[in-house]
């Protein structure tokens, strides 16, 4: 059996996925195992479940002392308090050596979070404003909701165009062109009741009016979304 035929036959056994695992950074200010153990248990008694199964990064950046210390003992204390240890960051070479000896991985000392696969600024929830249009959107007019959703409560004429980085909701008759997720958001959706659009598009995948006329839909609120690179319309 050749290598290439092997590649054809075998299904991939893994894939990479970016993820935003919540993670707590434990900054060690100075090291004393007795004090650490005592303070941890008093913190724990205030909120017993807080640390349970919480991924923790041990951060040495705030530590004054340059000396290596007993990472094996530190590990033992944290594990006893039900924390999951992700690794160690910051510190100097001597400290790194003892961390590795205790079986703790080293993380880059930079500002990277544990989700190094894809560094991103958006760790905190971002509340985006929705663009709201209450007057008719006539032929020749274009409305673009940048970085947000778009809600239109009036009619959208033939020859008008709606664009949004997020979702689009139209409560009047929809006769123009509607493009949601124009920056490539595959999760973007379009909602409308009277669908007579010239074109609907999600993240660049689209249906023309001709496509839509091939399979007429019953009345009612409609949801337009992407399913396997295929734009689908569903009556809710």
């Amino acid at each position: 059996m050749t290598v290439s035929s092997l590649a054809v036959e075998q299904k991939p056994c893994f894939q990479f996925k970016a993820n935003f695992l919540p993670c707590t950074v434990l900054q060690i200010l100075y090291y004393n195992d007795a004090i650490l153990e005592q303070q941890l248990s008093s913190t724990l008694s205030n909120s017993p479940s807080f640390f349970t199964d919480l991924p923790v990064i041990i951060d040495l950046d705030k530590m004054k002392s340059q000396d290596a210390f007993d990472f094996a003992k530190l590990k033992e204390i944290l594990l006893a308090n039900k924390m999951i240890l992700v690794g160690v960051r910051g510190g100097n070479e001597a400290q790194h050596l003892s961390a590795v000896q205790a079986g703790l991985p080293l993380l880059p000392a930079s500002k990277l979070s544990v989700t190094e696969v894809k560094p991103t600024k958006k760790e905190e929830p971002v509340v985006r404003l929705t663009k709201l249009v209450t007057t008719p959107i006539r032929s020749g007019m274009q409305v673009y909701a940048k970085d947000s959703d778009l809600i239109v409560t009036a009619a959208v004429s033939q020859g008008a165009e709606l664009l949004a980085d997020g979702n689009i909701h139209v409560y009047g008759p929809l006769r123009g062109r509607v493009l949601a997720g124009v920056q490539g958001n595959l999760q973007a959706r379009i909602y409308c009741s009277v669908l007579d659009a010239e074109l609907v598009s999600i993240a660049g995948y689209y249906l023309t009016k001709e496509d839509m006329l091939k399979s007429p839909l019953s009345e009612g609120m409609k949801q337009i979304f992407l399913d396997n690179e295929q734009v689908r319309i569903e009556v809710l």
Binding site: T135, P136, R138, S139, G140, M141, S157, Q158, G159, A160
Partner: peptide, 13 residues
């Protein structure tokens, strides 16, 4: 009708 619609858009802006 299409042109009138276009015109109404201009009238509003």
């Amino acid at each position: 009708v299409r042109d009138s619609d276009r015109m109404l858009g201009l009238l509003s802006s």
